[in-house]
Amino acid sequence: MTSSALRLVTPDSTGIEIPARRNLPSFVTESGLRTELKKLSGVDAVGAEARVAKLGTRSLKKETKKSAIDLAISMVDLTTLEGADTAGRVASLCTKAMHPDSTNPLVPSVAAVCVYPDMVATARSVIGSGAVHVASVATAFPSGRASLAVKLLDTKEAVDAGADEIDMVIDRGAFLSGNLLKVYEEIVAVKDACGTAHLKVILETGELVTYDNVRRASWLAMLAGADFIKTSTGKVGVNATLPVALVMLEAVRDFAEEYGEVVGVKVAGGIRTTKDALKYLVVVNETVGSTWLDPDYFRFGASSLLNDLLLQRTKQQSGNYARPDRFSGD
């Protein structure tokens, strides 16, 4: 044997190797899907929660913090999903999305605005061909309790109105009752209806409850063609959590390694502070790495988060704490 230490990896290779894209096997049967999901490792809930708690103690300082805040801003899907939404509110949100801090052009724009389908046209008219994407929830959001035909129409209308990202919900009832094929086929159909628009598949993890379900549903959505997997609608009691994000990130990592496809992750609901957002970025950083530290592959679905990021950004740049009213409400 050699007397010097063998080095398994070089520093620049520390990370996830994503092979060239491989053909996805065709999972057209219920039992085929079941077999595919069964091979996934179980998740020990305590271990997953302990892991994120530990990562949550990472201390981001100085330049790291500054760049992480800007990265987080660029990952925000600035969202309004209220019954009381009006064209005025959506337009104002779009303006803010393009120029989060009107006094400072160095602040990056957010990734997208996220609205209901009937507001897509308004959003598109404000954003035009700007860099900010227009995302629309569709498929009878948030419950998904409608026929496939309605869901597809919902999707098509949003796309036709100018949405370039669709956030669909899966049929949680079908998933929980073991009807995997139904969930799969709906995603495939919606993906088809999206055309060139990117598809984010909302798992509604708060209703799937267990991490094992989250991992399986993540895998199922990716097999069916999701461009992103997304935690939550923001409309149920439990929204995005760090351990759920961890499990989903592990799933996209393993999926990329197996099939050569990079799927994004969107965490949504309940993320309000910079501190929270940075914890997510640390988990991304240490679980899946640089490829996902990019708005193309990681998003925050949020509304109030943006202003806190702006507040903290100002503090980092100037050293002083800013007044919340410094930034526009929406």
Partner: peptide, 13 residues
Amino acid sequence: ESLHSQLGGLQYD
């Protein structure tokens, strides 16, 4: 293309 995702790419000060 095959690619590589670097872990810890976000350097901590």
